[in-house]
Design a protein around this nucleic acid. Structure first.
Lengths: 208, 208, 208, 208
DNA sequence: TACTAAACGAGACGGTACGTCCCGTCTTCGG
DNA sequence: CCGAAGACGGGACGTACCGTCTCGTTTAGTA
């Protein structure tokens, strides 16, 4: 009945919380300096002042470690309230672009996604640690826009979710593609065009 | 007669053309079976019935080899003429999605893009071998739509190019993101929504 | 009354005697199954149902543990009284050979001796736990033979000790070398030859 | 018919002979400094200016490497001709004792013998590389002694071999046991006693 | 009966070496 | 000069144990 039942305190020496944070910080530092492919577990361990075994006790491989190390950066994204949906979106897209410019994300993100095509647990970890967590931005933005009357209310919840997902893929995908594949700057002008295209599409679709 | 002749037929044994195609095929086969990260140069050489030296004589490293092996697949994309822009786009997007579903592209594409963030020559090779070659689809589609009157004529060439680039990043980015990051199916329904969003946005923008 | 009492019964929980015997038994079992080099402290601890800490509280390292685990086996050697020195020696040599055939001694003995060449405390432990304890057999045998008149009395105690030591090294060394280095069977015929050689040499020497 | 049939010249780059000798020398140096148990493959490779893989390409493990490194030292043993069998034996036993005192053999020999109890290929390697090669000393000694008339001729070849083997085990075993187990000096006095014991035994046995 | 102090199990820790895999280069021979 | 074969120096991998440590939990004798 009381909560003491489940795994009160595990026997043995508890894991060091300091080690966790030191490792994640070291991983980000190594990503900045070396990039994904030159990052090694041994180097991360040395930077963190930790034994290699301590890394492997917590993460099965380099990919999962890097996902966790990078995931936290995405939580910094904030949807501002600048008065209009267009402005809010432009701001958060620029935040996202700035994040993708950081060397620790730029190289790591694509690499783990590439690996995830062959690694189901990794894909799941990416989804829960990064993707799903950032969908909140789309959800928030749409809800606020509807309250403001900038977007029409859509009743069918399945349609709502489908549109949210579409927006997420379009915005995130376009920014990533622009930044990493096309290797062109994600500047204010481009962001304005992207946002206009998308909002135009949304309202046009709603009027049908 | 002049000294240029030596470049016409160099002395010694000429390079085997068969080796080239065997290597690229072997690379694709290895990608299918092993994925990017487990693919090794030695394995490709063995599959191709070729010595490792022969690989390195033609490509500097694994990344460039894989780009060349995969690039040719993208040339299969064709913009059909189904009568309406909407239908044409939906068709080519589905072709692109099918291409991304193939294991040899799925795993390789993101990986080389990831590497390219730290490797300028590789980025250049990706751009010329893959990216720029596929922009033709956007160009073709827009021109044909304008001829049909489905899209308004835009006079300023800089704007034209900017919009073409935007469309390319949006469509390619969205599909890639949907397929590889969100790991959701790129099915007819989703493609219709994407196309509608985009065309809606384009016409809305043009009316301003 | 005086402060020496604290050494009689130390405060705190006393060490478990069961643990001691369980550990030594587990060590022998592990030697049988795995041999010296694959035996690990963690494995012994698990077999004994004991924590690794408990091992290290009692023995400084693997070598000392193994010496203690094996030493007790040597105490089983008994010099029988079969009526003649030749017969007595043959019997005890065969006992010794049988002991060396057991997998827990075969693999462990040479290994700890090898380690002892670089580890003075270990050498001392081997000497006191094994070597010196078995010299009793030579001493007993010689004394009994002299009482029986099978060997002449030697007066000089230094010579006596030197000869005892020589016999010990010759017999033990020959058996070990035959069994482990030459890897030939220590059978009745060989033991007879060895014993005859030695007794012949001893009487020949005494006649000089 | 011609000798070219068997493996004339294998394809590919041939193995470096310099690497072989450098590795064996480095192994002996490491044995001197570190002893058997602290010797590591990586360290040997570094000393030899060679990659670890080069070691593993030639030897399966540390044990086999050490056997080969040490074996050559035993070939230095020479049976001198000092006029009498007793003197010859004493001399070669002292050579053997001196060899066993060298740090590279002292620690390594027992260790590989210990390992060989669980490793049949290793035992075979020890036998062919070391043991059988040194039996020549016994053979030579006996033959010369018979020519000189110091030992009676024995006709039965099986008996001859059995006695040769016995002598080998007795002498080698006694010296090793004295030096490494008893850890007492193998000095002139002790060697004289050992030789006398053995020769006495041999002649006594022959007279029966 | 409670206190105290050591022993206990469990298991995380920093560290070292392992033996393997692959890299990209080189050295040989034969075509 | 090309190509196969394969050895080379190098570097990272992920694993296995080492011997130590830090927990919370017994288990005595003592107060």
């Amino acid at each position: 009945m009381c909560s003491r039942t489940r795994s009160r305190t595990r026997p043995g020496r508890p894991r060091s919380a300091e080690a966790d944070t030191a490792i994640l910080e070291a991983t980000r530092a190594a990503l900045v300096e070396l990039g994904w492919s030159r990052l090694t577990m041994g180097d991360v361990a040395t930077r963190a002042g930790v034994a290699k075994t301590t890394l492997y006790r917590r993460w099965n491989n380099k990919n999962e470690l890097v996902v966790d190390a990078v995931a936290v950066l995405f939580d910094e994204l904030r949807l501002p309230d600048l008065g209009s949906l267009q402005a809010d979106i432009e701001d958060v897209v620029l935040q996202f672009a700035a994040l993708l410019e950081r060397p620790e994300t730029k190289t790591a993100l694509m690499a783990v996604v590439a690996e995830s095509t062959r690694d189901e647990p990794l894909r799941e970890r990416i989804r829960t640690s990064i993707v799903d967590r950032q969908k909140r931005l789309v959800l928030e933005g749409r809800q606020r826009a509807q309250e403001r009357g900038e977007l029409p209310e859509e009743r069918d919840p399945a349609t709502v979710e489908a549109v949210d997902d579409l927006i997420f893929d379009v915005v995130a995908g376009a920014v990533v593609h622009r930044a990493l594949v096309s290797a062109e700057p994600v500047d204010q002008a481009w962001v304005q065009r992207l946002t206009a295209l998308m909002l135009g599409g949304l309202t046009a679709a709603a009027e049908l």
